[in-house]
Simulated assay, not measured.
Amino acid sequence: MILINVYTSYFSYMNIKRLTIIFIGLLSCFGVFAQNNPLPAHNNWIFGPSVGYQYQSGSFLKASAWGLFAPNETQYMKIDAGANFTWMGGKITVIPELGFTYYVNDFILLPFVKAELTPYTVTPKVGISLFSLIDFGVGYGFDYHTKKDFKQIKGVNLSLGVNIPLNFHLY
């Protein structure tokens, strides 16, 4: 009986030792293959839709499409094109808009500067962004052309926007 226990103990020890060596060998092989197969390259652009609210001589709902790229490791630039929707004069008015945003650094809260152009105003802004997903901006809109049967859109501009990335990647 003692001989059987010694034999099974030795056999179990040898099995564990063999399994450990085989396991370490397999991990080493996977490591070699992983080094030979780098992660796939991604497009440098991140893009998606954006929705938001803006106050500038009235309330506007904003909807746009945007693209963001990194000229270096700590700065980002975003280009967006969309429309501002408002209810003035008893009807819905749609105003097209083009914007350019420059995020100053790479951190949780990113300060930014932005310029927005519509057929009626130019609006420079500054603000902060949470991971470039939620933007809060403050600026001043300069009216250069007043729309017929519409009030001037000028003055202090406050905006809040949510950017929804469709092709976000971590590597």
Score class of each variant (00 low, 15 high):
L133M: 09
N15H: 11
W87E: 05
Y55Q: 12
G90W: 09
I134D: 01
A63E: 11
F33K: 10
T86W: 06
M14C: 14
G137S: 10
Y53C: 02
T123H: 02
F47Y: 07
Y10D: 15
Y171A: 14
G67F: 07
Y53T: 01
L160K: 09
G31Y: 07
P40R: 02
L26A: 05
W66D: 03
F100R: 09
I95M: 01
A63L: 12
K62P: 11
F69I: 04
I128F: 00
Y10G: 15
F23Q: 12
L158Y: 10
A65L: 13
G161P: 13
F69E: 01
K148D: 03
G82I: 09
Y10R: 14
I46K: 06
K148Q: 06
N84T: 02
T118A: 02
Q56F: 10
L39V: 04
Y120T: 03
Q56S: 01
V113P: 07
S57D: 10
N5G: 12
A34W: 04
I22T: 13
P38H: 10
D135K: 06
Y76M: 15
A81Q: 07
L26R: 08
N157S: 08
Q75N: 13
K17L: 15
K147Q: 03
A63N: 11
I16L: 15
N36H: 11
E116C: 11
I24S: 15
S129I: 08
N105D: 06
H145Q: 11
N5Q: 15
F60L: 13
F168S: 11
F131E: 03
L61A: 14
N167Q: 07
F33P: 12
V162M: 14
M77E: 11
N5K: 13
D143H: 11
I153Q: 05
Y103W: 04
H42T: 06
Y144I: 02
Q54Y: 08
K148C: 09
N163G: 08
L27R: 07
K147L: 10
G90H: 00
G127Q: 02
P96Q: 04
K125I: 00
G137F: 06
I128Y: 00
I108N: 12
G89H: 11
F33A: 05
L3C: 14
G31H: 05
G139N: 03
N72E: 10
I95S: 10
L39D: 14
K148G: 09
Y120L: 08
I22K: 10
S50W: 03
F131S: 10
L61C: 00
I153C: 08
F142T: 09
D149C: 11
I21H: 03
L19H: 07
I22S: 06
V162D: 10
